[in-house]
């Protein structure tokens, strides 16, 4: 234990330190606000510059991206691809993730929980470049053997992304399912229902807002993922071919908003090209803000659900 002196000058000093520290704590917390402010300002300010030379309509709805040779900056194909890939990943991932969450929260015996939960945690920690490498070395050749195409494709990106967002869906859904009041489950079981009827008829509806939150959040993550997608989607700047020949675009090469930035940054020179990449980031940011807002709206309704990590 420390010695606490009651001498006057000592007391002045301890009071001074006490006040100083409370100020430092406040400033540290406020850095979060400053950071968010600066990030928003810098990305949007640098992005808006492009609209001095390229009209907003041509940028967002233009379908050709030839920034160096023809000075064409149309990101419409990338917006479409981003949505396509994200929604595809959610369709694969959400049912599986929610099923896994139900299993963990309601059915799994202790030993299964002790294996599956760390596995989910580990899956969340694996770097995205490793998912990209796995996709490039395993998924892409696999697609290649079953079809006549290069293998680098939207389908590969969807498969890898759906694995990457599983941990988010599982952990938040599990929290939501565990937050369902015990009375609700017990009343359902007291009516003579089976376990599955209780899950289906009582637990899932009661936790639906939490499950929506999980989906919205993982949507944001899939939309913003850059590296893994860049490695396996081919990154061609044309509109994906949505004809039945390529399984409605699934086997088509494409480029998303995020991979546009990563792919072009290596040779973009300051000027319209670099500005257009910031503008791409700004558009991406707008979509992320929208999904975050949806998340906030659902979060207010869902009880006991907190953002994982």
């Amino acid at each position: 234990m420390h010695k606490y002196f009651i001498k006057k000058e000592k007391r002045f000093w301890t009071n001074f330190v006490n006040n100083l520290m409370s100020q430092i704590f406040f400033l540290s917390a406020f850095i979060a606000v400053v950071s968010l402010f600066l990030i928003t300002i810098y990305v949007f300010y640098n992005g808006i510059q492009i609209f001095k030379t390229v009209p907003v309509k041509d940028f967002i709805f233009g379908s050709e991206w030839e920034p160096v040779t023809r000075k064409l900056f149309g990101i419409f194909p990338m917006i479409i691809t981003s949505f396509y890939v994200t929604i595809g990943a959610l369709i694969l991932s959400a049912p599986l993730g929610i099923a896994c969450a139900v299993f963990l929260a309601e059915i799994a015996p202790l030993y299964a929980q002790q294996i599956i939960r760390p596995a989910v945690q580990l899956l969340a920690g694996i770097p995205s470049v490793i998912f990209g490498l796995f996709g490039l070395a395993f998924i892409v050749p696999l697609i290649q053997t079953f079809t006549e195409v290069a293998g680098l494709s939207i389908l590969a990106a969807i498969i890898i992304l759906s694995i990457m967002i599983l941990p988010t869906i599982i952990s938040i859904s599990e929290d939501a399912i565990r937050a369902v009041p015990k009375e609700l489950k017990e009343s359902s079981i007291a009516l003579g229902t089976t376990k599955w009827q209780t899950i289906y008829g009582a637990i899932l509806p009661a936790s639906s807002s939490g499950l929506m939150t999980a989906t919205a959040l993982s949507l944001g993550r899939a939309f913003g993922e850059a590296m893994a997608v860049k490695m396996i989607i081919g990154n061609t700047q044309t509109m994906p071919d949505f004809s039945p020949d390529t399984l409605f675009g699934l086997l088509s090469l494409a480029r998303t908003l995020t991979t546009n930035i990563i792919g072009d940054i290596e040779y973009a020179v300051p000027g319209p090209h670099l500005q257009s990449l910031f503008a791409t980031g700004a558009i991406l940011f707008v979509f992320i803000i929208l999904t975050n807002t949806v998340y906030y709206l659902f979060l207010k309704k869902a009880y006991g659900v907190r953002r994982a990590q």
Partner: peptide, 25 residues
Amino acid sequence: KLIGFAIENLAGIPSIIYGLFGLAF
């Protein structure tokens, strides 16, 4: 509340946007 809002939002920003910010700032 503002601080809480900022932290929540920072957690949701994809890393590529952080990268663009790092590059610009």
